[in-house]
Write a protein that binds this DNA or RNA. Structure first.
Lengths: 274, 274
DNA sequence: CCAATAGTGTCTGTGAGACAGTATAAG
DNA sequence: CTTATACTGTCTCACAGACACTATTGG
């Protein structure tokens, strides 16, 4: 390499085709909570986590479901901007909670060419969504169960049920990091089964020490509803008094009540920042 | 877009230059702990966190310090493999704790062309290092202090001291995520000041709920030494009894003692997996 | 009244924070 | 004997887990 007098001069001479290049995408795990009505008029509706998937119209993986995503335009946007662009396009929403998750870069994850994908997690309140977007569909997570290092998923969008399994392998004894491998996957494109698991685990972890739940809640909610959301994400029942103590200083009681439920009405609360 | 009969046929036709491309690098924050001798013969040596930096030989940022890193070869390697290659080259060590940190992709982070960098954190035991590597130097973190959302750093490698400041801005009220901005930085190349802060915060968080410390410890160590490492990473003093309770089931006492220190000798312990 | 949820009072055990005390080496 | 660290005993207080109890609606 020649020596240049200064950075300016160096940049003028620089041949940007020197290094091998590749394409990148931003893929988004859009997560929300949905409610399932229940026959018994007294019972509350059941909550479920739900994620947005898109049916692929073209090869590769034509006809399979995948996460919303798009190619990065390296000249104009950052990965996060790219993710927000996709988010706008798929949900028509801006101002959404969006967090970088992980960069997936298996060499053959895309059969066309080397594509590195930076994945994001977005949390939305389903009530804010209006029109249905073409080819996109919300899948409820009706099962997510870990047994012997295998996580089994079952997703449902009212029309079809898809299943897949991911193997979790502890990477080293000193940390909590897992390597994920596809065990069984007939319905999802690329490595999006692994992205989904990573993302849901991230949400579960963050639930414990942040206030991210409120990104999936409407402005007014009952504590019972909030508790249900915690329970469905953590995948376990919580005790009422403990739960109420835990969130006491995160929420603000209002005068309004939710009535007509066949049982004692519940006060509505809202998120209290600070 | 034309319609293809099947995936095979589609791939044959696929023009991989369709999407704009870019280059990627893997940059590594290599962290270790160093000891500083103390004049008083009775006192224990003081511990410090230390990180490996490399002096840039060429433009851009010629003469500035940066994290070890290298361009990804998209045909042959994953980002983690790329990072391990760099790690081998800079420390001559394999089998090192390595964890993906974050993907930095500011549009102008590299003045030459669009380069997206996936950063990694590596933890090493300095005792395993032998030869000094050309252009690389270990910097002790002699100050890392947060005040009014500004984090001030002071690093020292015995020959020079470098300083920089990063501004932390909370991204949203519901989470613990910060956006980092360079406040003051004359000595470090690219956005590596931000990478360093992210990485050190990651280590501090993980210290609390994993066993990653032991990646920076020699096989045998005293509990005093281990406590010092915790203290220097968490940047605060810990109470002896609480600390010992906390790590009791992570370590295994041996018969060996560390003597000749001018005070009561201490038993040597080792990491107990499980 | 019944069924179902809303919401509260309180006991108990665990475990972190705190402090004080004893032990043991080198000089 | 002094100094500095090694290591332990124990008190207290906060808080999570657990259970039981009361309150309130629609049908």
């Amino acid at each position: 390499m020649t020596t240049y007098k200064n950075e300016q001069e160096f940049l003028k001479q620089y041949d940007s085709s020197l290094y091998e290049k590749l394409s990148m995408t931003a893929d988004i795990l859009i997560v929300s909570v949905s409610s399932k009505d229940v026959t018994n008029y007294r019972k509350n509706e059941e909550k479920r986590m739900s994620i947005l998937l898109v049916k692929r119209k073209d090869y590769p993986y034509k006809g399979k479901w995948c996460l919303p995503g798009g190619f990065l335009d390296p000249k104009k946007e950052t990965l996060e901007e790219c993710a927000r662009r996709v988010l706008k396009q798929e949900t028509n929403l801006s101002d959404i909670y969006l967090e970088q998750l992980y960069t997936f870069d298996g060499i053959n994850r895309d059969p066309r060419l080397r594509v590195v994908s930076t994945s994001f997690v977005a949390l939305v309140d389903k009530n804010k969504l209006k029109e249905k977007v073409e080819n996109a569909s919300w899948f409820d997570i009706i099962k997510m169960e870990e047994k012997n290092h295998i996580v089994s998923f079952q997703l449902d969008n009212q029309e079809e049920t898809i299943e897949f399994q991911v193997r979790k392998e502890l990477r080293e004894k000193t940390s909590d990091r897992y390597q994920f491998y596809t065990k069984e996957n007939k319905s999802l494109a690329f490595d999006h089964d692994l992205v989904i698991l990573s993302g849901l685990e991230r949400i579960r972890n963050k639930l414990q020490y942040t206030d991210i739940v409120f990104n999936m809640m409407p402005e007014y909610f009952t504590l019972g509803e909030l508790q249900q959301v915690y329970e469905v994400i953590l995948n376990k029942k919580l005790l009422d008094p403990a739960f109420r103590r835990m969130i006491a200083d995160k929420v603000q009681k209002t005068e309004r009540k939710k009535t007509g439920e066949g049982h004692r009405p519940s006060y509505l609360f809202r998120y209290k920042h600070e």
